[in-house]
Design a protein around this nucleic acid. Structure first.
Lengths: 245, 245
DNA sequence: CGCCCATTTGAGTTTAATCAAAAAACGTGG
DNA sequence: CCACGTTTTTTGATTAAACTCAAATGGGCG
């Protein structure tokens, strides 16, 4: 079941059959959750760790006056609640964007696997650092990029992330976000997002229909976005750890 | 020398004398660096870990056309280059904002200390997670807060962080940033930052002179900023790990 | 079919950016 | 300690990007 997680981690290191088996063992208890539900609320301190197997969720923070910012997209193979083994309480909420299937992993089971499988430990380390790098890149987007650049950058990032877990087909990928959700991600209004999409369609860059995104000209889109994939650290950085050389 | 680091980590757990000694042992080789120098460049893969002992630095990313975004402030007691033990190359640069003294720690020495001092390991884990939480909060600021709110929020955050390492005096703290640097942090122009400062001074909220910030009314400033300190996770979260109960 | 949610379009407003220049503060060497 | 060059801050006038408000259109699903 945790195929997307495995696929993702293998961008960092080659796992052994035993490693993969251990990961499968973790995803035993699976829960289905509908769209627009909170998986975790701000202030929660869950006792198990949740892994998204299918569907999209997001981390978000809400200000007292209602303004909402999505601070991360949680895709299949991503953990919801990384590492509250250390922190007492969550400082943000996690909500579903689509119906989702999550594996609930008892934290002691996870700990045991990490102890016995140093490659998995390292790979999850890598995954954490990449998540932090993505967060930094979002800071750059919100701080420096124009509305058009932001939308373009988001699409490039999601396309690469989805490709990494095998969820693209050619130049097409799922994009189940509404324009309001894109707006909440990019610090824009839905009206303005709509106008940027109009512009990108007009320029022949993308097709976006029935929750699927087709990127007609990826290099051009990346140029517009000032997108540089380096921050995703995709090039087998931990090869020195590979199972079987 | 790594007093600020120790002070910071003790917000998470109480360290033993041996723990503290080990940290002191790490900060043996110290380097002085002038203002506006790069400690690390985008793409570097340094072989040692650098800890800022004194002075301020920042992580920043620069777009191809010159636009620059500061993505984090590195204060005394912060590491420059967390965790490139895993990643091959840095995806951002680290530059000094003031003259700085950094300790250069061989990564194997750090690893050894982490192995032998589980409390330090956990505390550094905590520190990493808090850094991630700060990055998320910046995403909220840049995405949702107005210019005035952003400046106010930054000041609250820096004041709390500095207080945590003992660098405040009453309601006053150092603030060695220029208005251009504040602007690069908040995704604003220096002109607009200047106007917001003018407004905050006029409202009797702050005094900012000769690189020192005095917050005349912290509750009011926090209200304006929609600041909620929860994300800094300051309340002795790891007390179950404390040395001597 | 009809309802609800999401998208699209238009008109007017606001926030923050840009451009330009003056004033103040800082640092350094004579 | 003062003069001078540089950096930083401050102020003003104008412009541009994105927001707000409002209403119409379109799609998906029971």
């Amino acid at each position: 079941m945790p195929d997307h997680l495995i696929r993702k981690l293998e961008h960092f290191t080659r796992l052994s059959a035993a490693d993969r088996l251990a990961l499968h063992g973790l995803a035993r208890s699976v829960r289905a959750v509908g769209r627009h539900q909170d998986l975790l609320r701000d202030g929660d301190s869950p006792r198990h760790v949740s892994l998204v197997l299918e569907g999209w969720a997001c981390r978000y923070k809400q200000l007292e006056d209602g303004r909402r910012q999505i601070v991360a997209h949680v895709l299949p193979g991503d953990f919801c609640d990384g590492y509250l083994l250390v922190l007492r309480a969550l400082d943000h909420a996690v909500g579903t964007l689509t119906p989702v299937r999550v594996a609930e992993i008892p934290s002691n089971a996870l700990m045991e696997v990490l102890d016995q499988h140093p490659r998995i430990m390292q790979a999850l380390w890598w995954e954490t650092l990449v998540a932090a790098a993505i967060q930094r890149e979002w800071t750059v987007s919100l701080g420096q990029r124009t509305a058009l650049e932001r939308v373009a950058h988001l699409f490039c990032e999601l396309f690469w992330r989805l490709r990494m877990i095998g969820l693209t087909e050619g130049d097409t990928c799922p994009l189940p976000l509404t324009q309001v959700e894109i707006a909440d991600t990019l610090g824009l209004t839905n009206v303005h997002v709509n106008r940027m999409l109009h512009q990108m369609r007009g320029a022949g860059l993308i097709v976006l229909k029935s929750k699927r995104l087709t990127i007609l000209d990826l290099p051009a889109l990346q140029d517009i976005a000032l997108f540089n994939a380096g921050y995703l650290h995709l090039e087998r950085e931990g090869s020195h750890l590979d199972a079987e050389g």
